[in-house]
């Protein structure tokens, strides 16, 4: 059996929507500071898997271990774990009625009970780091897609999570805005953040991932270091998928 004391361990995770099995016995372990990329066609279960890890989607069977603790027991209060696991969505999901600063500060003040001054300082620092310092008092609809997505990342980071889940965060962006968001991800990786990233950006996955998992029909068909999976995939399905893309 797996070593469950790793940062994040998925053991036989299965998630069904009615009759449809979206995640079908997923096994995956992620080390602290590791970056794992999930690739695969739309509908292969990447997004659902990330939502399961964040406990937004209850799993039907299997276990999710966070630092050796089973967080997937039915009926367990998900809130204490959610604040340790940040998630960023494809469609940004910023709160449109709040400024950038308010978006970032809501959760730390309400959930971590941080003071307003502390939170502001953290938020300012993060905005500075990602080149958004002059956007603090803007509303989301005044920002470009790339800026909105960077704010969404900052909003998740302000909770000081131990793991970041990034769910196709560049898929809704215009091509010229993808780069600025990927830069942010790269910076996170350099700071040793543990990251699970679902993406269609193969070049990016190849460049920065420690490991790449190919998902198909809710199963992980193949897990390998990026060089290996991109140059010499073991499975025929993987080869076919990559062939269509590259």
């Amino acid at each position: 059996m797996k070593n469950r004391s790793q940062k994040l361990v998925l053991e036989d995770v299965t998630c069904r929507f009615d009759e449809l099995t979206v995640c079908d016995g997923i096994n995956l372990s992620v080390d602290a500071g590791e970056m794992v990329c999930l690739i695969g066609a739309s509908g292969s279960g990447k997004s659902t898997l990330l939502r399961c890890i964040n406990l937004l989607e209850p799993i039907d069977s299997g276990h999710i271990w966070l630092d050796g603790e089973d967080i997937s027991i039915p009926g367990l209060d998900p809130k204490p774990y959610r604040k340790r696991i940040g998630i960023v969505f494809q469609s940004f999901n910023l709160f449109p009625h709040m400024t950038v600063m308010q978006n970032i500060c809501l959760a730390p003040t309400r959930v971590l009970n941080a003071t307003v001054t502390e939170t502001h300082a953290v938020a300012k620092d993060l905005l500075q780091r990602f080149g958004l310092q002059d956007k603090a008092s803007e509303y989301p609809d005044r920002l470009s897609g790339g800026q909105q997505q960077r704010v969404a990342i900052v909003r998740a980071l302000a909770m000081q999570p131990e793991i970041m889940l990034l769910d196709e965060i560049t898929s809704a962006l215009d091509p010229e805005l993808v780069g600025e968001v990927l830069e942010v991800v790269k910076a996170l990786k350099e700071q040793n953040m543990t990251i699970v990233l679902a993406t269609h950006e193969m070049a990016f996955a190849r460049e920065v991932a420690d490991r790449v998992c190919f998902l198909d029909g809710g199963k992980i068909l193949e897990t390998a270091p990026p060089e290996e999976i991109f140059t010499n995939p073991r499975e025929a399905r993987t080869r076919e998928f990559l062939h269509r893309l590259l």
């Binding site: 939502r51 709160f95 959760a107 309400r110």
Partner: peptide, 12 residues
């Protein structure tokens, strides 16, 4: 998705 975003941040 607004609720999901809020709950994913740990809000009650």
């Amino acid at each position: 998705s607004q609720r999901a975003a809020s709950e994913s941040l740990g809000l009650t």
